[in-house]
């Protein structure tokens, strides 16, 4: 079972704060791990770089992944997660402001579980986050391995 960590990958501090607030406000009490770029999330997941020595048997319950990230971009992160047997089954929700069709198509192609556009209307955003919380933290059990 482990702790139900939500891994939030977002480079924009405003969006990070607002996302965390939205999750908290809707009674999602899980630990939220915030990372700021694509390299950092890979290091975190695979216990490398600054996360060297991290117990990587403890993996997040869900990854909220922004697409436009410094250093390694979101699509590549997704690709690397899906390519590695240790992280292949992690639920990944793409969380981005991009409305580009091709982003959506390529993230599904690369194995994203869901795609949520960060809406400017905060109510919509909260609704999206709430649905995510419902889906991935309350209803969905992560596959046992």
């Amino acid at each position: 079972m482990g702790s139900k960590i939500i891994l939030l990958v977002e480079d924009n501090p405003d969006d990070r704060i607002l996302t965390v607030r939205a999750l908290k406000q809707h009674n999602i009490s899980n630990e939220i791990k915030e990372v700021k770029d694509g390299q950092e999330v890979l290091d975190y997941l695979f216990g490398e770089g600054e996360y060297a020595g991290r117990d990587i048997t403890i993996q997040p319950q869900i990854i909220l992944l922004d697409l436009k990230l410094p250093r390694v971009d979101g699509l590549e992160v997704l690709q690397r997660i899906r390519a590695d047997s240790r992280t292949r089954r992690l639920p990944v929700v793409i969380l981005t402001s991009s409305n580009e069709q091709k982003d959506r198509i390529s993230s599904y192609d690369l194995g994203a579980n869901s795609y949520v556009r960060k809406p400017v209307d905060f109510n919509e955003f909260i609704e999206a986050a709430r649905q995510l919380g419902m889906y991935w933290l309350m209803l969905n059990e992560a596959p046992d391995d």
């Binding site: 924009n12 969006d15 607002l18 436009k68």
Partner: peptide, 22 residues
């Protein structure tokens, strides 16, 4: 250009709207 408009212009707007609501 459109891609970056879509991402970058929207982020500050989200902040303005989100923090106003907060």
């Amino acid at each position: 250009f459109s891609y970056s408009v879509s991402h970058d212009l929207r982020a500050p707007l989200r902040a303005i709207d989100g923090f106003s609501l907060a």
